[in-house]
Design a protein around this nucleic acid. Structure first.
Ligand code: SF4
Ligand code: SF4
Lengths: 137, 137
DNA sequence: TTTAATTACTACTCTAAGGTAGAATTAACT
DNA sequence: AGTTAATTCTACCTTAGAGTAGTAATTAAA
């Protein structure tokens, strides 16, 4: 009942990048050290983020990563979708999903409420909004 | 972002047993066939449920399982705890958990709200309440 | 007393996520 | 031109959850 490590890492990585957008480029080394994410695993994630166009990479010495898409236009929901980690609309808390309005278990309505609330939260939370002052990302 | 198969199976198994409490004993075979849960995997779960005292088993021919603890006293939360699948109080949506009231990300308050709501739902949902008429468990 | 039906036990296999290793590629700096 | 610091590629290892296989133990029915 939680997000995958990959998703959580990604959110923290992108939030960190927002918080350091004064720098033109941020290296994998810096991200790995400051966010305490295994270097090799982080670079694997970064390559994926580049390939889907969230960020851009500059190779070679003095290289690094920077946003390609605006942080205000990348939502947590986008990230969860990317790593197949989002709460699907048809997701049933019990994994049955052949119930209908007339035949539903006692968990159904409460679950739907929580589900909708979480989905809304993920959709409305941009990386830009997660980062910022108080945040201890 | 969902429950483990083991937890989901268990909820359905116990709900089925409530819905068939007219029978003195219910066999693994019946459960497996009616709930579409792999037989061998189901018996593994059953043994665990017996060992923690939720149900009782009668071995040998004509044997099977029956409740030891009352279904109205077994909550979904108990099941999630058993399979280490519950939402821990300290669980942070981003897996950081060194944030405090003054340093929190934009997801924090919304996440806490959903978390509390889910935890409450799990605690207040007994197997007895999940099963029953309309239910398509 | 044998047989059939049942749970329990032990020990595997399979899969996907998470993580690691090493070498290839790129490009700025000296 | 050579060195160095960076990303990228390919391939592997590890772990936990899910699921399977075979057999032993138990007990009622035949
Ligand atoms: S009624 Fe219960 S089992 Fe059916 S879809 Fe809703 S939550 Fe799932
Ligand atoms: S502030 Fe954000 S990152 Fe920190 S504990 Fe709360 S949800 Fe997690």
């Amino acid at each position: 009942m939680q997000l995958s490590n990959t998703s959580k890492y990604t959110i923290r990585i992108l939030a960190y990048m927002v918080n350091h957008k004064d720098k033109p480029l941020i290296s994998a080394k810096e991200l790995s050290e400051n966010l305490n994410i295994p270097y090799k695993f982080l670079t694997k994630i970064m390559t994926e983020l580049v390939s889907v166009g969230f960020i851009e990479s500059i190779r070679g010495r003095e290289g690094g990563y920077k946003f390609l898409k605006k942080a205000s236009e990348i939502t947590v929901s986008d990230i969860l979708t990317l790593f197949n980690d989002s709460i699907k609309d048809e997701a049933c808390i019990l994994g049955i999903d052949f119930c209908d309005a007339k035949h539903k278990c006692a968990l159904h309505d409460k679950w739907i409420k929580s589900k909708v609330q979480l989905q809304k939260m993920f959709r409305e939370s941009t990386i830009e909004s997660i980062a910022g002052e108080g945040s201890k990302i």
